[in-house]
């Protein structure tokens, strides 16, 4: 099934690719279970593209203006073909509505996905040098250096965002190619769709919550991986946490828990109207801090207070930045 999809993606790309175009997709990295973004300019490279349950990196980030400046060759005139999971497609939608890139420059290829594996969870469980990681329809098979084999049920090793289908809906946008059976995909979604996941905010008292946040964020090393991988963060070198020219510095460099909390709070409030809940920050965190405490909560607030899910379409106006005459004030 998976191999078939990979072939379909390659086939589609071979058809729509024109000389001078760029393809952003995944390819194998050197370690087992690692996939890394691939930037392909040649037709013969299309066969390197992979798509499977290990393609956890969201490629939407590479579309924003700053990243394009770094990646694209000078005088690039072609189109960008980007391969996306449905959840990343929402981030791409958000990139469109934030006017980071024009729709006319992008060919969006959405691939039917049935859950991405949390590789870190598996690696942590094995705690050994892994030499091989393969997937079957329902299982992940792992072999470590001593030859010991591990079997993980896919169902139990998904990334948090894949546990229910809240992030898997397709955007309202008619310009994308869908690889896979769209009808089957939509029915599958309907079956898996669940209400909001439980968050510590639901069960804890404010005091306990404060303690929990304190405890989790005290491990933060302020490496900025969560900010830099976030598809909604596009201020690049003008970010308030760096040293922007002629602007006040909001958070001291000093790495204390208070400053760290301030950093995350400012960041998550700032991206609340853009955050599609792709969970990249949590995945990128080298310290495995459960950042879903914040972004899932903000997502939920956006939905409940404003009836708004970021990334649904390509031209939605940001709810926190726009106002219609006669609209109720919150």
């Amino acid at each position: 099934m998976k191999k078939q999809i990979e072939q379909n993606v390659q086939q589609l790309l071979t058809q729509i690719w024109k000389p001078g175009d760029l393809i952003i997709a995944w390819k194998n990295a050197s370690l087992p279970g690692h996939r890394t973004p691939a930037f392909l300019y040649r037709k013969e490279d299309i066969q390197d593209i992979v798509f499977d349950s290990f393609c956890d990196i969201s490629l939407a980030k590479y579309l924003n203006e700053r990243n394009r400046q770094e990646i694209l060759p000078p005088h690039f005139k072609g189109k960008i073909h980007i391969v996306c999971k449905p959840c990343d497609a929402k981030s791409v939608m958000q990139t469109f509505s934030d006017q980071q890139i024009s729709e006319t420059l992008v060919n969006l290829i959405v691939v039917a996905c049935d859950g991405i594996i949390d590789r870190k969870k598996i690696e942590k469980h094995c705690d050994q040098s892994i030499v091989d990681m393969q997937e079957t329809d329902f299982q992940i098979l792992c072999t470590d250096i001593s030859g010991k084999e591990y079997v993980f049920e896919k169902r139990e090793s998904w990334l948090r965002k894949c546990e229910d289908a809240r992030n898997c809906d397709l955007p309202y946008y008619y310009g994308y190619y869908f690889v896979g059976d769209e009808k089957e995909y939509r029915t599958r979604l309907k079956h898996r769709y669940q209400t909001h996941k439980k968050l510590p905010q639901d069960t804890m008292s404010p005091k306990e919550l404060q303690q929990k946040i304190h405890q989790e964020l005290s491990r933060c090393i302020r490496c900025n991986a969560c900010r830099n991988i976030c598809p909604a963060c596009f201020c690049s070198d003008q970010c308030v946490f760096d040293k922007p020219k002629e602007r006040a510095k909001l958070v001291e460099n000093q790495v204390t828990t208070e400053n760290t909390i301030l950093y995350h709070m400012i960041r998550f409030h700032h991206i609340a109207p853009n955050c599609t809940g792709c969970g990249e920050c949590e995945r990128a965190c080298p310290k495995d801090i459960p950042l879903h405490i914040f972004f899932e909560y903000f997502n939920r607030c956006m939905e409940e207070e404003f009836g708004y899910k970021p990334g649904k379409t390509n031209d939605e106006r940001q709810k926190l930045l726009s106002y219609n005459l006669g609209e109720d004030l919150v």
């Binding site: 302020r222 900010r227 460099n253």
Partner: peptide, 23 residues
Amino acid sequence: SDVCIACGACTFNCPTCTCFDSA
């Protein structure tokens, strides 16, 4: 560098990185 997102995870976990900033 095309792939790199220029965070500091590698340098902050590196056992030999010695750069610092003072304020």
